[in-house]
Nucleic acid binder design. Structure first.
Length: 692
DNA sequence: GCAAGGTC
């Protein structure tokens, strides 16, 4: 008999645990164990109509077109889960997780306790996916939990000595808050049904108009920015500034609109008149201050995606290629939320940094800072920030087999990591002012030693004074400076990434994932051109529909997360959080319907109807028992005549000339019947092929 | 046909 079945989140974690404990089974911390692993969530909610009991409820929760069925009553749902379908993007195969769950179940039969050893995500996701499996196998013996700082042997062994019992899942905050989050998001799917209905009502023959906490916020933000760009009118202004012989500009710092208005003129002649009030002035108070700057943070997946987007790689391909490189252990775990690394992780990589530098062509003599700066160090980082792996490729070229962006991924990751082994950037900050007009000042940086910047510079800093002479003065002349109100930024992958990060929406991985989703497929909402985003027609529809809604606001995620934290601390009931989703639907439903009436104004002509999504004409009528039914008015290329419709409603068999999909003509016989398609009931003509 | 969160 086993003491303990250790449940890891994924294969790589199970492998690290086996290495740390001395095999996939054995003895650790005085207990016999066996390690098994999931691969993320193995279970997911059933469809809404399969989580309710009565026929009336099933009908209500199947509807995409009756707005009176929403908001849903979450108390109607059993919240039952089913085996997830896992889709492998490079074999392009979808497979049920049933076998994985059963395999864990049979191993568990020999154990006294299950140890949930999934990731310790701040959102509680690891706890949720662990409990999903424990519940799915109907486990009713003790459950324990470990949380580890990282997956190095030292940290994993330490964790084994501080496991806690969590057998009552309803008292475990991490589980409760994550469960509430998943129910909230599930309920938000109503907004997709509402939006799809609203767009069709407005005459747009769309496929599905997806909405959710991430999707809606992204498309709305892009649309609003596009509006700002479209409405932008360049308004030049003329302002008095000074210039010295080397070209340094001396200007006043204009803090608010009032100051700007006083100093800037709409007409060039007024600007010139202002300039004429000044004379040439000596430069004075020249100060030179030595400054240093440490390397920036390690990049996350969304940032990597945006850097590579500029080089022409799309996010979907980057994600797939990164995953393959991770499986080959050439790069660290992709979907991390960590932006820092632990001391252990730093030490692990230290012995191979010179080899990495050689592969990517970095100057090894710059890698002198061999200790971990506190700004890059975390005490806990399950996977650590995105970085090269311990396995070093023989050359950049050898990486090509992983995908088109493989070399660029490795180069970027490696240089970004190696930069933290460089010394601080050193520069002089030079400032000066005018003797006659001390309000006019200049300031610029003169690089002294590039150090880490010579290894990797993500170009986020706006000082590009490299080419400017550091000789200031001796005097400066007034001139008319022509400026203009700034043009709004073009929406881009980088810009959206920063926006989502600022509002704490999604993780680095899900941010990139959602952007990949929105930019690919036939129903793409976003067109991606080297990282620059524009909305497609369905994307514009999605955005216009959620104007002034709650789902389109970044604030909704903030509120959800704030309340989740309270659930996590057992201060608030999960039901209250889940119910807040219902209030969002209540609020947004009428707004989306109202917005749909303004679609033509912003979207223009309707989407070209494709055969697949063209609305089929429907006939309404009453059966002999009085039941009202609606059914397609055509079948097999034949349009039912008024007489045939009456016969069908009366329950009679009719025959007519039809055409098969292959175009072959034949006589179809049959009657009106209630049928089922993909679990949903509908009325329609049903041919009796046996008697034809 | 629907979400977002894990995973491959």
């Amino acid at each position: 008999m086993l003491d303990m079945l250790i449940l890891a989140e994924k294969a790589s974690a199970a492998k690290h645990m086996a290495k740390a404990f001395g095999g996939t089974s054995g003895t650790v911390a005085g207990k016999t164990y066996k390690i098994v692993h999931a691969h993320g969530h193995l279970m997911e909610f059933k469809d809404p109509e399969k989580m309710v009991k009565t026929d009336a409820e099933k009908e209500r929760y199947s509807s995409w077109s009756d707005m009176k069925t929403m908001p849903w009553n979450q108390a109607d749902f059993s919240w039952a889960k089913t085996y997830a379908k896992s889709y492998n993007s490079y074999t392009k195969k979808s497979k049920s997780t049933r076998d994985d769950v059963n395999a864990i179940k049979s191993e568990a039969a020999n154990a006294d306790a299950i140890l949930i050893a999934t990731d310790n995500d701040p959102s509680g996701e690891g706890d949720l996916l662990g409990w999903e499996i424990v519940n799915a196998i109907k486990w009713n013996k003790p459950v324990y939990r470990i949380r580890f700082a990282d997956e190095t042997p030292k940290s994993l062994n330490q964790a084994m000595h501080s496991m806690v019992e969590i057998t009552d899942q309803f008292k475990q905050g991490e589980y409760l808050k994550s469960d509430a989050r998943s129910k909230w998001d599930f309920l938000s799917m109503q907004l997709t049904r509402i939006s799809t209905y609203a767009a069709r009502q407005a005459g747009y023959r769309v496929k599905v108009i997806n909405q959710g906490r991430l999707k809606s916020v992204i498309v709305l933000k892009i649309w609003q920015q596009q509006q700002l760009i479209d409405q932008y009118v360049k308004t030049p202004y003329y302002e008095a500034k000074f210039k010295d012989p080397a070209g340094h500009i001396f200007a006043r710092s204009l803090k608010d609109d009032e100051q700007k208005q006083a100093a800037r003129f709409a007409a060039e002649k007024d600007g010139q008149a202002e300039v004429d009030k000044y004379t040439k002035s000596p430069v004075t108070n020249i100060k030179r201050q030595h400054k240093t700057q440490a390397p920036g943070a390690l990049i996350d997946l969304a940032k990597l995606g945006s850097i590579l987007a500029k080089q022409g790689f799309n996010s979907k391909e980057v994600l797939a290629t990164y995953q393959k490189m991770y499986e080959a252990e050439i790069v660290s775990y992709p979907r991390t939320e960590d932006k820092k690394i632990t001391q252990e992780q730093f030490n692990e990589l230290l012995s191979v940094v010179d080899a990495i530098a050689q592969v990517v062509g970095a100057n090894q003599q710059l890698l002198t800072h061999r200790s971990l700066r506190s700004k890059h160090r975390a005490t806990e980082a399950a996977h650590g920030a995105n970085r090269p792996g311990v396995k070093v490729p023989s050359s950049l070229e050898s990486l090509s087999k992983y995908g088109p962006s493989a070399q660029a991924i490795y180069r970027t990751l490696a240089l970004n990591y190696l930069a933290i082994l460089g010394e601080d950037y050193q520069f002089d900050r030079v400032t000066a002012e005018l003797k006659l007009y001390p309000d006019f000042k200049t300031g610029f940086n003169v690089p002294v030693q590039l150090n880490y910047k010579a290894i990797f510079d993500d170009n986020d800093s706006d000082d590009d004074s490299n080419s400017v002479s550091d000789v200031v003065g001796p005097e400066a002349e007034p001139f008319v400076y022509q400026g203009a109100n700034p043009k709004p930024t073009r929406p881009s992958a980088d810009w959206i990434g920063k926006f989502l990060e600022k509002h704490n929406i999604g993780t680095g991985a899900t941010r990139l994932g959602v952007q990949a989703q929105l930019t690919s497929g036939k129903n793409a909402f976003i067109k991606d051109q080297k990282g620059f985003y524009t909305l497609t027609q369905p994307g514009t529809i999605a955005a216009v529909l959620v104007r002034d809604s709650w789902i389109g606001s970044p604030n909704i995620t903030k509120q959800l997360f704030d309340h989740m934290d309270e659930v996590g601390k057992l201060n608030e009931s999960p039901a209250i959080v889940v119910n807040s989703a219902t209030r969002v639907i209540e609020h947004d439903l009428p707004i989306i319907l109202k917005n749909s009436r303004e679609l033509t104004q912003f979207v223009g002509k309707q989407v070209k109807a494709t055969k697949k999504y063209a609305a089929k004409p429907k006939t309404k009528g009453q059966l002999t028992n009085g039941k009202a039914v609606e059914f397609s008015s055509t079948w097999g290329g034949h349009k039912f005549t008024e007489g045939e419709i009456q016969q069908l409603l009366a329950g009679q068999v009719i025959s007519f000339a039809a055409k098969s999909k292959a175009g072959k003509a034949y006589t179809a016989s049959g009657m009106l019947k209630e049928q089922t398609y993909k679990g949903k009931k509908f009325w329609g003509f049903k041919a009796d092929f046996g008697k034809k």
